[in-house]
Simulated scan of single mutants.
Amino acid sequence: MTDAPTVPTPPVVRHLYVHVPFCPTICPYCDFHVLQRRAGVVECYLAKLREDARALAAAYPVDLQTVYLGGGTPSFLRDAELADLVDAVRTHLGWGALENTLEVNPGTVSAARATHWRALGFDRASVGVQSLHDPTLKFLGRPHDAQAARDAVTTLLSGGFRVSGDLITAVEGQPLDEDVRGLVELGVEHVSAYTLTIEPGTPFARRGVQVSEDAERLGFERTEALLTGLGFERYEISNYARPGAHSRHNRAYWTNQHYLGLGPGAAGHYPVTGTPGVLGERRTNAHLHEWLAGTDADVDVVTPEEFVTDALFMGLRLRDGVDLADLTTRSGVDVAARYAPVIEQHVARGTLTLDGTRLRATPQGWWVLNQVIADFLNDEPTQG
């Protein structure tokens, strides 16, 4: 009698992203899946979220290190609603052992709410400051003023949160130096600085708002000069931190780890075992009304070579770059040999450096990273 074949055990998933699509207002630059709340919709959302959390727990071994509630505006949920969401996650999937982040709109913060959020188990707040200049906030369509942003950060810090502040750069008329210094002076340990991007279909696109490459580059370079001068490390293209204050959850994305996506529009990177030529699946959930109706997620199978290009695309955003030997072990592809011509060409151009098995993008490479990755995808360097 022969033994039955052993079915491989899927890798343990240690990260969870939860999408909360509701916002008090929709910013004119935003192209995320967001909408304003309507009567009864949040209740249906919470019930479906609990059902999906149960299904994920049954399908995958889970031992969470990080949980991240993004949006939308998770802090826009009423206290009882957020408590219900957290209970659904805790009941079926557990809670992050290392870091649990809540995205926060400044206008939703009070001392009492900060205390409630800490009691629910959140220890890190990512605050959508965007600017500390009232005319810039008005242009961006933000539902708060600069003083509300300052008050939100100080309230959260007093409430025991680790605080990250978001900034948008390359806005015409923005006093960038004042924004950066003002945010740091409030006491944040982490800053995410993003260039204003005009996405198709947004109100800004319809209004013909444009951002020049010169403005983008100035924001890109000036933000780094200011923040590194103030003791922050640029550890990823758009992210800066005090020592030890990196985002543990986002690092899971940048190092191509598996993570669960819960909620409408949420994306996840799921392990797959026992299928030759497949290392995982990337799934993106349907938008709210289709998701509530039970529409299946869009699924893309991750082959070994797709795993490699995904890992390069995300990993080269990090100052640490990518360990090609580790990536070879994880993917089964000899990365250094497979992409030697592309690597050699970009090292010669000064956009990449290779130190042993560690591949990194240079500052110049960060600026043109999309083209660098396109060359890996095409498997041959562009001319120039």
Rank of each mutant, 00 (worst) to 15 (best):
R118G: 01
R118M: 01
R118I: 02
A119S: 08
A119Y: 00
A119Q: 11
A119D: 13
A119M: 02
L120Q: 01
L120G: 00
G121D: 14
G121V: 04
G121T: 03
F122E: 12
F122M: 08
F122H: 08
F122R: 09
D123C: 05
D123K: 00
D123E: 15
D123G: 15
D123F: 00
D123M: 04
R124D: 09
R124Q: 12
R124I: 07
R124K: 07
A125N: 09
A125M: 08
A125Q: 11
A125D: 03
A125I: 12
S126N: 10
V127I: 08
V127P: 05
G128S: 05
V129K: 03
V129F: 12
V129C: 06
V129S: 05
Q130L: 10
Q130S: 08
Q130H: 13
Q130I: 12
Q130P: 09
S131V: 01
S131P: 02
L132Y: 09
L132D: 15
L132P: 15
D134V: 14
D134N: 15
P135H: 05
P135S: 10
T136E: 07
T136F: 10
T136A: 13
T136M: 07
T136C: 05
L137R: 00
L137G: 05
K138L: 09
K138E: 14
K138I: 10
F139P: 00
L140M: 08
L140S: 04
L140E: 03
L140G: 01
G141Y: 07
R142Y: 13
R142N: 06
P143I: 02
H144S: 06
H144A: 07
H144N: 07
H144G: 06
D145G: 15
D145V: 09
D145I: 05
A146Q: 10
A146I: 03
A146D: 03
A146V: 04
Q147E: 15
Q147G: 15
Q147S: 14
A148P: 01
A148N: 03
A148E: 15
A148T: 15
A149P: 05
A149R: 02
R150C: 15
A152M: 09
A152Q: 11
A152N: 11
A152P: 01
V153E: 03
V153F: 10
V153S: 13
V153G: 13
V153L: 06
T154I: 14
T154P: 01
T154L: 11
T154K: 14
T155E: 04
T155N: 06
L156W: 01
L156G: 08
L157E: 04
S158L: 14
S158C: 14
S158N: 11
G159K: 00
G159T: 05
G159L: 10
G159N: 03
G160I: 02
G160W: 00
G160R: 06
F161L: 13
F161A: 14
R162M: 09
R162T: 11
R162Y: 01
R162S: 15
